[in-house]
Design a protein around this nucleic acid. Sequence first.
DNA 1: TCACATTTGTTAGTAGACCTTCCTTACTAA
DNA 2: TTAGTAAGGAAGGTCTACTAACAAATGTGA
Lengths: 394, 394
Amino acid sequence: MTATADRQRQGWGKALRPTTKVLPEHARAHNRSMVLAHLFHAGPGSRADLARSTGLTRVTVSDLVASLMAEGLVAELGVRPEGRVGKPATLVGLRTDSFQIVAVDLADDERMHGAVLDLAGLVVERRSTAVDGRTGESAVRALTDFCAELVEAATCPVLGVGVGSPGVIDAAGTVLEAPNRGWYDVPLASTLESALGVPVHVANDANTAVLGEFTYGGATGSGLLVLTVGEGVGAGIVLDGALVKGHRHAAGELGHVTVVDERDDVDGAPLGPALECACGRRGCLETVLSVPALRRRVAGLDPQSTDAALASVGRRLGILLAPVVSALNLSEVVFSGPPDLLDGPLRSAALESLRERTMPVISSTLELRMTTLGEDGALSGAAVLVLSGQLGVT
Amino acid sequence: MTATADRQRQGWGKALRPTTKVLPEHARAHNRSMVLAHLFHAGPGSRADLARSTGLTRVTVSDLVASLMAEGLVAELGVRPEGRVGKPATLVGLRTDSFQIVAVDLADDERMHGAVLDLAGLVVERRSTAVDGRTGESAVRALTDFCAELVEAATCPVLGVGVGSPGVIDAAGTVLEAPNRGWYDVPLASTLESALGVPVHVANDANTAVLGEFTYGGATGSGLLVLTVGEGVGAGIVLDGALVKGHRHAAGELGHVTVVDERDDVDGAPLGPALECACGRRGCLETVLSVPALRRRVAGLDPQSTDAALASVGRRLGILLAPVVSALNLSEVVFSGPPDLLDGPLRSAALESLRERTMPVISSTLELRMTTLGEDGALSGAAVLVLSGQLGVT
DNA sequence: TCACATTTGTTAGTAGACCTTCCTTACTAA
DNA sequence: TTAGTAAGGAAGGTCTACTAACAAATGTGA
């Protein structure tokens, strides 16, 4: 044999991968989170149950449960009622009354919506406050006060504060740009954290929405996209249980992708000329799919024309989503927004268009549905942000 | 405060997350891989260097290096020549001569291409064999023989065999469907593994291409899509260092997304009527972007018309990619295929179209380029499959 | 020239994390 | 009453990575 070294291609000289070391204590933290997550998703169970479903030994689970009980996160709930052979199991469960979570949704330009939730995601207290046109530093102060009010309203220690905000937000919770609020490079998480004295997590509102849907909605598979339709249009994507963040933290920014071309005649019911968008370009998705745009489009139309108009937008959306759904082989696409606009001809047309434009292997297992969380998607997602950040529960 | 429990939304009752336990030995394996990966990417270094860049202590690194030396994967290379203060460092480096990797690319319908590579990804020996129209069981036997020949040709122990094949392939290396080869639910990896006696990893060819580009190409950022244009069109996506697999293992199947509509007039240089595709639908990307389709399109045209025709396809591609690039906020899109077709007007038009149709925050940092690996993308990617599967090096 | 600082790599001891093994407890079934 | 089964805990072992301390080898400055 001839050693034909036909091309120079050594590994050296490449950029370093940002891997980090893993210590045994990280393994411990992971297993602790796993026990917690199991109690969270599957409800109370015995230590032996937990051992069986986690794969850890009963001894280890006992140890983990002991430390979780010491932290007040779980508690023994007495023996299991059903009589089976052997020693009766003592159930342990998440103490949903031990901590609470404060969540805030800033998607609405007019009002900030917030809530206090228990560890199971149940809303305990709901508040909102007017934005009154505040922007920049003033808006940060208003938000701080609002969060403080919510923390005050909690009836037990607050695990953390989660905020879902429009805009591009990095992993540290710094708002890189949020035109609506006039925020540019605002370190929102650290500012709130030092003001409130509790951990604060901030993320894009569409990303919190997808986290909420993933954790509390009926997420079945491994690829989930949530499209949030409000004053703007956004998207959040969870793949293999992890949020897609994007190279510049801008993943999911679908609102300003062009969907209407100048010379446009693709559709039987044309969308009309490409409309100017707030971003300065023309024909962006937001110019046809945002709530204001949809309301304008159907204003004064008779029911039949309304349906046709909505279906027309739906077809456009399907065309836009087809490449995304195919590239990622998603299992679910979920719409979050006003059902009267989204959950009829628009959704049907989008699904039909998606099916027409993708392979059966992609479209046959795809589900396209409305969120099960109503308007609280981003809010409960903000809570998930805290659960995930503080307890590792997703 | 009133405890307003306004909606039933406990966590219980949800499907279990498929989390797995983590043991200290897994941490060990991770740290071992990290040391190995560092030697792979950054080249030889002292134990103290490795300690600094991994964050582990010198003691731990010494221990890891000792076990890696015992396995024959690394070796001491003598003292570092540069004279600095202190005890001279003894360099440790990956022994690229200790193991070899066999890689096979099945993307070509006519010939199977294979190679023996060293641990640095350098091709040591190159072979190919005619497919001769074999399909099904017969094709599996031919592949087995070809792999055995390559394993035979290796001059030192074979770390594993990596295969890149068209089709939908699951994580275990079972080909769920590959029409070109007539393979349906063929457990290719386990079949080859038992025949060859070495670990075998099988993945979709577009996925191996993106792995190759990620590891050996100039992947700079965190989101990479490789579009492979050959007899068909495929794509592979790496996000945050991990391959996107998809709900049904079909991520990247972009070849059969519709890009040409029946009533199509979007473009100044229209693509003509939607062509029938092998998949039974019309207007799929493959009907305009595959190598045969492109060759047909430009056959007999003068240079100027050729450019216009290629640009027209490029614009279509840009329209298709815009939602994907936006949804994932990719940092790089890489084309793999014949440069004479792809690397001119087609690529320019695609980039221009992408920029026109996406937000600046998405497009300004996006790079759209040809692969740096030539035709070996899928081949070196298949080697990465082995490196990653056996050593945890990516 | 010689003491001292600096860096490398190793040895010894410690703390944490999980495991296996064995025991007690408490219940069901015959 | 006796055997069998299951839950939970105690004891001891192994593995992992850490800190502390040290020897070796080199450069630096008085």
